[in-house]
């Protein structure tokens, strides 16, 4: 390494001074909570009094707890359902609205509404739709179409609730997928479609050989973003169907209800964090090939 001149050293120092505030803020607001959470996961946390170091006991208890595996399964179902659902519906909507038809601009705007609507008001609306006695869902299923003669409390049922939560998430978030895909669709060079047509490809071939490869990275970005968001998603699931225990909800119940066990909850968060980091690394390397 070449010895630095006085000027270079001064410049280096100045550079560090410039980034120091940002580093400080990041350290305080991001690194510290993460590290503190990892630290807590090795303790039996006492609300009043001193924490007791227990080593890996929290992790051992977690890995032998069937409720944790149930929560992992629920999370997997939720993630697969919502990520696939929002991406496919967003893609479909974008392809449709990329065609020219009268009133297209109005539809393009309207389709964004679910994404903009405040979570809490929409959640109350959905809860009312699925109310077992007065809701329109049971009215349609039981009284109008006679699909079944038993009214169900779909939203609060621990098994069925996850389906409602998935449908809700798809409905609420497909507009963001649609928006990203549509903007990419509009920038695809029409020459490519002409060239494909000359090569003898029909609409399906053009979609497969032009549209999809062009959308590859946009779709990849959507999938990873939705994945990160939904693995950490709390408010929608908790407000809509508190009996659906994805990992963040499971963490909340462990940390703040029943036998309040914040050490155990911290270890759930650590596992969730590691899982997320691992999946993102794999995805970025293999799918996005960055």
């Amino acid at each position: 390494m070449k010895p630095q001149t006085v000027l270079e050293r001064a410049e280096n120092r100045f550079g560090w001074q410039l980034v120091a505030p940002s580093l400080g803020v990041i350290g305080l607001l991001i690194l510290y909570p993460i590290l503190y959470n990892v630290y807590l996961s090795f303790f039996d946390v006492q609300l009043v009094g001193d924490n007791v170091f227990v080593g890996l006991e929290n992790y051992q208890r977690l890995l032998t707890d069937s409720a944790f595996y149930d929560s992992l399964t629920t999370t997997a179902i939720y993630l697969l359902g919502t990520v696939a659902g929002t991406t496919l519906l967003g893609l479909g909507a974008a392809l449709l609205l990329n065609q020219d038809f009268p009133g297209r601009n109005v539809v393009r705007g309207l389709i964004l509404l679910p994404y903009f609507a405040p979570v809490i008001s929409v959640v109350f609306g959905w809860q009312f739709i699925f109310d077992p006695v007065n809701g329109v869902y049971n009215y349609m299923v039981v009284e109008v179409f006679n699909l079944t003669d038993e009214r169900m409390n779909v939203i609060r049922d621990p098994d069925l609730g996850v389906i409602v939560v998935i449908v809700f998430d798809i409905w609420k978030h497909f507009p963001i997928a649609y928006l990203l895909i549509l903007s990419k669709l509009q920038s695809i060079n029409t020459d490519l479609y002409e060239a494909a047509a000359i090569d003898g490809h029909g609409p399906w071939g053009r979609f497969w050989h032009v549209t999809l490869p062009e959308l590859y990275f946009v779709l990849g970005t959507i999938v990873i973003l939705r994945f990160i968001w939904n693995l950490n998603k709390f408010e929608e699931v908790f407000l809509l169907a508190p009996n659906v225990q994805t990992l963040p909800i499971f963490t909340y119940y462990t940390a703040f209800t029943g036998v309040i066990d914040q050490g155990l909850a911290a270890s759930v968060s650590v596992i969730q964090f590691v899982l997320l980091c691992g999946l993102i690394w794999f995805y970025v390397k293999k799918v996005l090939k960055w």
Partner: peptide
């Protein structure tokens, strides 16, 4: 009881005569 997990809010069903 009315279907699914229920709590006190379901008293509305009583007021509705259900």
């Amino acid at each position: 009881a009315p279907p699914g997990p229920q709590t006190w809010r379901a008293r509305d069903y009583y007021i509705q005569g259900r």
